[in-house]
Design a protein around this nucleic acid. Structure first.
Lengths: 153, 153
DNA sequence: CAGATGTCAGTAATACTGAAATTG
DNA sequence: CCAATTTCAGTACTACTGACATCT
């Protein structure tokens, strides 16, 4: 490919230093690295977020899962269907509230989660690699403040 | 069972502080704000990048435009078609190289660009609003280093 | 011939909207 | 009736791939 979207210098001057552009580029790079690392374990970011949420909170309904993992309920359906096909989770109707599905991590799903955690860590290291340890902490702090502010709106 | 969505800690602990997650959230928020501001002027980010590039570099071919604006040439085709329909640019075959189309900003396009520049500025201010001036500079600096490092991958 | 260009069709992934059916 | 849940269908934006015809 002759088009390198991570290269910063050729974009219009009015765009070049804008936070929206820098965030888009940094996020695209991070996402690419994350997808690459997770694909080695056979999952996408959506899958991992759902599985990690499930591991942390135990059984839960799809709606609760989606809220906790920050994934829209309609997207949860599709991702969960794939995870069920892959044998990483099971879904069963909740006898106490028959609108709900109880989603449960299978032993195999729990097993493979450790490899996913490792892949996540490796991806984060690759993402932050160009920065010093101090800069990494600064960036995480600033981004945390920025995203915390966007949570209510 | 009931999860509070307004609290910032709803995502799994393993994901919560990861740069990939923070960058994704921050970028999504920035993109949303940018789209909202630009939609007031009737364009999407792709359109603006192309128009701003055209204004800066003057006439150019679609391939050159795409490289300068960091947009794939196949996506340039679609966006340019929309801009031509809207009367913001014109396309004419290059007599000196008949593979190429020469893309030119129309007077109307040039006129409406100033409103787009204003929309871009407003979006950036909204994006950085939760941070102090010092933090804003820090963030831009860190993101610039991060994206500059992704050049060769 | 290789290589650039414009074009089209299609896909991937995140994110979101609207609506329907079921249940509480 | 109203609200929550699951599900499906569809859209928006970015990003990318493969292919093809044309032209240098």
């Amino acid at each position: 490919v002759d088009l390198d979207l991570t290269e910063p210098g050729t974009v219009p001057k009015r765009v070049q230093a804008t936070p929206s552009w820098l965030l888009a580029r940094a996020s695209a790079r991070a996402h690419k690295l994350l997808v690459e690392h997770l694909s080695g374990v056979g999952v996408r970011p959506y899958h991992y977020r759902l599985l990690a949420t499930l591991e942390e909170t135990g059984q839960s309904s799809q709606a609760d899962l989606g809220r906790a993992a920050h994934i829209d309920r309609s997207d949860v359906v599709a991702a969960l269907k794939e995870l069920e096909t892959a044998g990483l989770v099971t879904r069963a109707p909740d006898p106490r509230n028959r609108r709900r599905n109880i989603v449960t991590l299978t032993p195999d799903g729990r097993h493979r989660l450790s490899a996913m955690h490792a892949a996540l860590s490796a991806a984060q290291q690759a993402i932050l690699d160009p920065l010093t340890a101090t800069e990494q902490d600064e960036l995480v702090g600033l981004l945390t403040r920025l995203t915390a502010a966007g949570q209510e709106t």
